[in-house]
C-alpha cells in the first residue's frame, strides 16, 4: 500500500515538474516573441523616445536649464535626467504592452494563447517581461544620450535598478488591463494621452514637488508617478522629495493590486472569451 502511495506521489511530482518546465518554456516563448517584435519595429519603439528625450535635454536642460541654475546642489540638467529616464521607461512599457496585446486581440492571434495550456499568470508574465525589457532598453538609451549633455554618478545602484523594474512593471500591468478592456485602437490611446502624460508632467519630472504651495503639493502626492520619479532620482542623485520607504510602499502596493486585477480579468477572459 505504501509502495502504491509512494509511486503516486512520484507521478504527481513528475507531472508538476513537467508542467513547471512547460510553463518556463511558454514564458520564455512569449518574452522572446515580444522582444523580437520590439526589435523588428525598432523605428517605432526605440528611435522616437531617443529623439524626444534629446529634444527635452536640449530645450529644457541646456537652453532653459542654464537660466534656472542649480536644484538641490545639482545642475537643472542633472536634476531632470532621472525624471526623463523614468518618463521614458513608464511610457514605453505602457505603450509596448497595450499595442502588442491589443494588436493580438485585434488580429485574433491572442487565440493562440487562449487555446493553449498556459495558465493566465504565464501569459501575463510574458507580456509584462517583454514590456519591462523595452522600458529598460529605452531607459538605457535615454541615459546614454543624457551622458552627452551632463555627467552622472549613480548614488544608489540597487535603488535605481529596483525602481526602474518596479515602475516599468506597474505600467506594464496597467497597460495590460487597458488593452484587455480596449475594443478599438482609440481605447489604447485615450489613457496615455489624457491620463499618463498629464500625470507624468505633474509627477515632479521637471520640478521639486516641495516648490509647490498648498494644496497643489498635497494633490501631487496622490500621483503615483511622483513616487517613481522621486525613488529613481534618489537612486541616481541621492535626493528625493518623499521618504524612500514610502515610495517603495506605494510602488509595491500598486504592483500587487494591478497584478491581482490583471490576473483576475485574464482568468475570467474579460474582453477575450465570450
Amino acid at each position: 500500500m505504501n509502495d502504491v502511495r509512494a509511486e503516486a506521489a512520484v507521478d504527481v511530482e513528475a507531472r508538476e515538474f513537467s508542467v513547471a518546465r512547460a510553463n518556463a518554456v511558454a514564458l520564455y516563448t512569449i518574452t522572446r516573441r515580444e522582444v523580437k517584435r520590439m526589435l523588428r519595429i525598432w523605428t517605432q519603439t526605440l528611435i522616437p523616445p531617443a529623439i524626444t528625450m534629446t529634444l527635452y535635454f536640449v530645450i529644457f536642460g541646456r537652453l532653459i536649464g542654464s537660466r534656472i541654475g542649480s536644484m538641490h546642489g545639482f545642475s537643472y540638467m542633472q536634476y531632470i535626467v532621472p525624471g526623463l529616464v523614468m518618463m521614458s521607461v513608464i511610457t514605453n512599457s505602457y505603450g509596448n504592452i497595450t499595442s502588442s496585446f491589443f494588436g493580438s486581440k485585434f488580429g485574433r492571434y491572442v487565440e493562440e494563447l487562449l487555446a493553449s495550456p498556459m495558465p493566465s499568470w504565464v501569459v501575463l508574465s510574458g507580456y509584462v517581461a517583454g514590456a519591462v525589457l523595452r522600458g529598460l532598453l529605452v531607459g538605457a538609451i535615454v541615459l546614454v544620450i543624457a551622458l552627452f549633455f551632463t555627467s552622472l554618478h549613480i548614488a544608489h545602484p540597487l535603488v535605481t535598478i529596483s525602481t526602474v523594474l518596479l515602475g516599468s512593471t506597474i505600467f506594464s500591468l496597467a497597460g495590460f488591463i487597458n488593452a484587455m478592456f480596449a475594443k478599438k485602437f482609440d481605447d489604447i490611446a485615450i489613457v496615455p494621452t489624457f491620463v499618463l502624460t498629464p500625470l507624468t508632467y505633474l509627477g515632479g519630472v521637471f520640478y521639486s514637488v516641495n516648490a509647490l504651495g498648498s494644496p497643489w503639493r498635497e494633490v501631487s502626492l496622490g500621483n503615483p508617478i511622483l513616487y517613481m520619479v522621486n525613488a529613481f532620482r534618489y537612486g541616481v542623485l541621492g535626493i528625493s522629495d518623499v521618504a524612500v520607504w514610502i515610495t517603495y510602499a506605494v510602488m509595491l502596493a500598486f504592483a500587487i493590486a494591478l497584478a491581482a486585477v490583471a490576473l483576475t480579468l485574464l482568468h475570467r477572459g474579460v474582453g477575450l472569451r465570450s
Partner: peptide, 19 residues
C-alpha cells in the same frame, strides 16, 4: 495568426506555448 510573422516562427512559438 500574426500577419507580420513568418510561418516558421508562428509554428515554433505556438509549440512554445504548449511547453
Amino acid at each position: 495568426f500574426n500577419q507580420f510573422e513568418t510561418p516558421f516562427d508562428i509554428c515554433v512559438n505556438v509549440a512554445g506555448f504548449y511547453g
